[in-house]
């Protein structure tokens, strides 16, 4: 078995999904962001985004805070230290994997 395959198998699918990766990357770069910003960022529908955020919250990668601004409900999201570490490691792993895939020579039949 070659190294890139092993690296792929180690990828965290929860983080690697493109929309969730974008969410975590954005939240890692700021103190907090609201639901609408993440919706604009990912281009997802409210339902889809909610589903992704629930999965990230379950994994304790983000914290979801719901509050009322007057009569308007607002949802604010923050990344947890665990989430920040996980996304950082994920980017490092992707970079390593990409470098390995360049060096990789396919096996002959």
């Amino acid at each position: 078995m070659t190294a890139p395959f092993e690296g792929l198998a180690e990828l965290d699918r929860l983080i690697h999904e493109p929309a969730r990766l974008a969410i975590l990357t954005a939240l890692g770069a700021c103190a907090s962001a609201d639901f609408l910003f993440l919706q604009s960022l990912t281009g997802l529908s409210k339902g889809n985004l909610s589903s992704h955020l629930s999965r990230l919250e379950e994994a304790q990668l983000v914290v979801i805070e719901k509050a009322f601004n007057g009569k308007t409900p607002t949802t604010t999201l923050r990344i947890t230290p665990k989430g920040a570490e996980a996304v950082e490691k994920h980017w490092e792993r992707l970079a390593r994997l990409r470098a390995d895939s360049r060096k990789w020579t396919p096996p002959k039949d």
Partner: peptide, 26 residues
């Protein structure tokens, strides 16, 4: 092969996109 297995259609473009995402969020 990398593209297929990592869902990164164009790694350089996706990386650039995520750099922009980070920049906009920051």
């Amino acid at each position: 092969w990398f593209v297929m297995q990592t869902n990164l259609a164009d790694p350089a473009a996706v990386e650039a996109h995520h750099r922009r995402v980070r920049y906009v969020a920051t």
